[in-house]
């Protein structure tokens, strides 16, 4: 299994530092779309300031699980979620929890870049504005774009439309937009799959930087990306009942070099997938 070596400054102290508490975890999480069960009994944890990758073949429920984390599945009328998702030990599916508050703390970046048809500045500022940001908006925009590694490319054209950027830049704009509201967790649903290789690398480097302040959960089709970028990996597969389930979960290093489940090994070595 070839691993791209990380640049020294990118090598995180995380490899040496102890893992803290799980900032989020799923307990017996199942999802039904109407009568069809999409995901079965997932138990999973995400640790603070780490990158967790969800990998697996198509249709195994990775994106569904990801969307449960910030209650985006609420938007699908026939979706039914059972089990618990804990955020700082609060079940976000509890009876008194407002999904709007959940999404304020757990942000999302989508597979296809979807900046608003507004200016670059407004794209970043809008989320902060509606959440009542009181400080200097100009500073926030600059900080967010800098953290998203986009500032130098757009600092002279903040008034231009967000749609005038290239695909990779748009995706970084979406990341900047997400971090402008300063969430705890950023969920990324195959963020680089629609981008060219150079942009993909930029996004991966960006993710490493972001873990300084944020926790990241990423769904990816690209095994190598998971192997080289993430700290923890969860491998999903599809059962015979066509419901997705979690096969194996652990530190990336172990999952890729010493998988416990033969199915995991089959997938990693490319025998299935």
């Amino acid at each position: 299994m070839a691993q791209r070596s990380l640049r020294p400054e990118m090598r995180r102290a995380a490899k040496e530092a102890p893992v803290g508490d799980a900032i989020m975890s799923a307990r017996d999480l199942s999802v039904h779309y109407g009568a069809f069960q999409a995901v079965r009994d997932v138990n999973l944890s995400f640790y603070e300031n780490r990158i967790t990758a969800l990998i697996g073949p198509s249709g195994c429920g990775k994106s569904t699980v990801l969307r449960c984390m910030n209650r985006m599945n609420d938007l699908i009328p026939i979706a039914r979620v059972s089990g618990e998702v804990l955020y700082h030990n609060h079940n976000i599916y509890g009876p008194n929890i407002d999904p709007v508050e959940v999404r304020r703390r757990i942000g999302m970046v989508f597979q296809k870049p979807n900046p608003f048809p507004k200016s670059i500045y407004d794209n970043v500022a809008w989320g902060a504005k509606i959440n009542g940001y009181r400080g200097s908006m100009d500073d926030l925009v600059e900080r967010s774009l800098t953290q998203a590694a986009l500032w130098n490319e757009v600092k002279d054209k903040l008034k231009d439309s967000g749609l005038s950027l290239s695909g990779g830049q748009q995706q970084r704009l979406c990341i900047a937009r997400a971090i402008a509201i300063q969430p705890d967790v950023i969920l990324m649903d195959e963020p680089a799959s629609a981008l060219d290789p150079i942009s993909t690398l930029k996004i991966e480097d960006l993710m490493q930087e972001l873990t300084r302040n944020y926790t990241i959960v990423i769904v990816t089709h690209n095994m190598q990306q998971a192997a080289r970028s993430s700290d923890f990996t969860a491998y999903f597969s599809v059962g015979e009942d066509r419901a997705g389930y979690l096969v194996e979960y652990g530190p990336t290093h172990e999952v890729f070099t010493n998988p416990k489940d033969p199915k995991t090994e089959d997938y990693i070595t490319g025998r299935v997938g």
């Binding site: 938007l75 508050e101 942000g107 979807n114 937009r177």
Partner: peptide, 17 residues
Amino acid sequence: PPSQRQAALALGATRWE
């Protein structure tokens, strides 16, 4: 497109916003 709505909602916006 629904992607626009989802992007906005994912930023912690209310339905009305």
